[in-house]
Design a protein around this nucleic acid. Structure first.
Length: 578
RNA sequence: GGACCGUUAGCUCAGCUGGAUAGAGCGCUGCCCUCCGAAGGCAGAGGCCAGAGGUUCGAAUCCUCUACGGUCCGCCA
């Protein structure tokens, strides 16, 4: 049940009737007709802009359309009043029974809030995709959490979602990794080693070096690189991916697919993707113009194979194969996305770090070319996170060893806090993460605030049980006994949930869910607090069991929505606060 | 030189497909605990939505230009 789309459907029906009666012209487009919650509650429960949007195409005054529409809408049992206001808004008030229906739907219909907007379409969300050269650090967290929540959100909205991680195991940095692990391996054999520039000195490779020793003994000691490099590379990337999988698990993330870049090499898959572009006449042999502005010192014109990405909105054509026959990094990316397209996805989402801003256009160009415009690719950027501790910015530096890992973050604040807080900001705005605030249990901390709302509902249920009140069948409660204006406000918030899901899913913006949950929690706390002044608003009315059951049904419905919402965000709801 | 993102209250940020008097939290001011959990509550002050043009019944929202901030720009992935 989605109250807003139900009422919008009603508005459209009424417009059709008016058209059939000749009041409105035939064939009007209703696309821009909206039914929304008004900003000001004094304007009623819902407002529609139908009269204003249709005034021009219908060549009528907004007021005349609004009056006619109000007459039709008023005849529906769900509408208690329809008033024309402002420049032509139609403000609707809904019958009390409608709110009761919403509460009952939230309580009894497990699919309340889910949507059929996805219609089972296959969508692939690729996120994290960190290089397999070490554990995840805080810089990866935002994209990881964002991508994961987006995937859950799309799933909730009726898409068939695949969560995917692209392992960059084909480039030079995994050779560096392999050499670094080899050094740790020698160390495990008791040798003194030095980590020069171009190797990774991090302690996290010690275990990998020892594991390699356990596996191959001294077989590689003193041997040339060509003997061991390929083997160690694969061993080391496997070890790092195990590490990364554990880090992801600590954040509550489980991927469906890990896709290896290496699997594209030597298997003809890159060639196949590039051939596809060639067959579309989108690859040519040529040189790029020198970059404008700052000129690299050693720049020289170079002939290479270029992809005509400018035909798809990019600023420059992009090299896919260098003059010496080596692929550029872009080539496997093309092949990977070609693979995604051929796997039959109806939509793709890539979550990139902000440092990959420059690759957005070329990637979109590639997918547009490969899929001939059939598969939309949305690229979401995870902006940087600044860390604050004791009121001061905490700068991460690999060299200085001040380097906060995902594990550090989870150990310090917990998975739930990390996830929720990261999701309270839009993905593409820079974000300050304050450790002190994150662990604080107060209203300043949005995670706590939402969790506390949930805990309070459980607390009421416990008290009700102690008082011997039967709350086993909340849907059977007579909800007309919880119809105070403050209680209806909470029901109204519950009614917005399906709409929030649809907007968030359509815009690929899971932060809307977090913000909504905060609002919903706020509404619940507010109702609770009003019980302090007005005893009739307390949830437990021991001398009036039916009213208690109705009030409990209401707050349980709110809690159902909180649970679903937190579920999308990957946060475990709290039953009590400690 | 160029691309992308941003600029909204003192601070951190929301703001839906363009919709009514622009919202929240913090901070500030004033009131309030014999009250289902004060881990607070209620109320109030605080805005030229960076600036200038344009589109229209209507613009924080769309378009153009400017300013400021961030990220990035062949031969690393």
């Amino acid at each position: 049940m989605n109250l807003f789309s139900d009422i919008r459907a009603l508005v459209i029906d009424c417009l059709d009737v008016l058209a059939a009666e000749g009041v409105l012209p035939d064939g009007l487009a209703y696309d821009n007709v909206t039914v929304e919650p008004p900003r000001d509650p004094a304007h009623g429960d819902m407002a529609t802009n139908a009269a204003m949007v249709l005034a021009k195409p219908a060549r009528m005054k907004p007021r005349d359309i609004a009056d006619a529409l109000a007459g039709k809408l008023g005849a529906d049992a769900r509408i208690s009043s329809a008033e024309v206001a402002g420049p032509g808004f139609l403000n609707l008030r809904l019958a009390a029974g409608v709110w009761a229906d919403v509460v009952r739907a939230a309580l009894t219909d497990a699919s309340y809030g889910t949507s059929d907007m996805g219609q089972g379409r296959k969508i692939n969300v690729e996120y994290v995709s960190a290089n397999p050269t070490g554990p995840l650090h805080v810089g990866h967290t935002r994209g990881a959490i964002f991508g994961d929540a987006l995937a859950s959100l799309l799933d909730y909205a009726g898409y068939d979602v695949t969560r995917e991680y692209y392992i960059n195991d084909g480039g030079g940095q995994v050779d560096v990794l392999a050499r670094s692990v080899y050094l740790r391996y020698l160390e495990a054999h008791g040798q003194e080693v030095t980590f020069e520039d171009g190797t990774y000195p991090g302690d996290y490779l010690i275990a990998a070096g020892e594991a390699l020793k356990d596996k191959v003994g001294d077989a590689y000691v003193g041997k040339d690189e060509d003997v061991w490099l390929a083997e160690v590379r694969s061993f080391a990337t496997d070890a790092m991916m195990d590490l990364i999988r554990e880090d992801l698990a600590a954040l509550g993330i489980k991927m469906d697919v890990f896709f290896s870049e290496k699997s594209l090499y030597g298997t003809g898959r890159i060639e196949q993707a590039i051939d596809d572009l060639k067959s579309k006449d989108l690859i040519y042999w040529g040189t790029l113009k020198p970059p404008k502005g700052k000129m690299p010192e050693d720049w020289a014109p170079r002939e290479q194979w270029l992809f005509k990405s400018t035909e798809f909105g990019d600023d420059e054509d992009r090299p896919v194969q260098k003059g010496d026959g080596a692929w550029t990094y872009f080539a496997p990316d093309i092949a990977y996305h070609y693979d995604k397209v051929t796997r039959g996805f109806d939509g793709l989402v890539d979550v990139f770090g902000a440092d990959h801003t420059g690759y957005v256009k070329r990637m979109k160009a590639a997918v547009a070319a490969l899929s001939e415009g059939r598969v939309p690719l949305d690229i979401k950027l995870a902006q940087i996170v600044r860390l604050f501790k004791n009121g001061q910015e905490f700068k991460m530096s690999k060299r200085a060893g001040t380097f906060i890992t995902v594990r550090d973050l989870v150990d310090e604040v917990g998975k739930d806090v990390a996830r929720f807080i990261m999701l309270t900001r839009k993905n593409d705005t820079p974000f300050d993460f304050d450790f002190d605030k994150a662990v604080e249990q107060s209203k300043d901390n949005p995670v706590f605030y939402v969790q506390y709302a949930s805990a309070r509902v459980h607390s009421v249920l416990r008290k009700a049980a102690e008082a011997g009140i039967d709350t086993s069948d909340p849907a059977a409660a007579d909800l007309s006994l919880a119809a105070h204006e403050a209680e209806l406000a909470l029901a109204g918030k519950i009614a917005e949930w399906p709409r929030v899901v649809e907007v968030a899913a359509r815009t690929h913006e899971p932060h809307r869910v977090a913000l909504y949950l905060y609002d919903l929690a706020s509404e619940l706390h507010s109702l609770w607090n009003r019980g302090n002044d007005d005893a009739s608003l307390r949830f437990l009315q021991e001398d009036n069991i039916p009213a208690t059951q109705a009030k409990i049904a209401l707050i349980r419905a709110a809690n159902v929505v909180i649970s679903h919402g937190l579920g999308i965000l990957g946060v475990t709801p709290a039953k009590e606060m400690r």
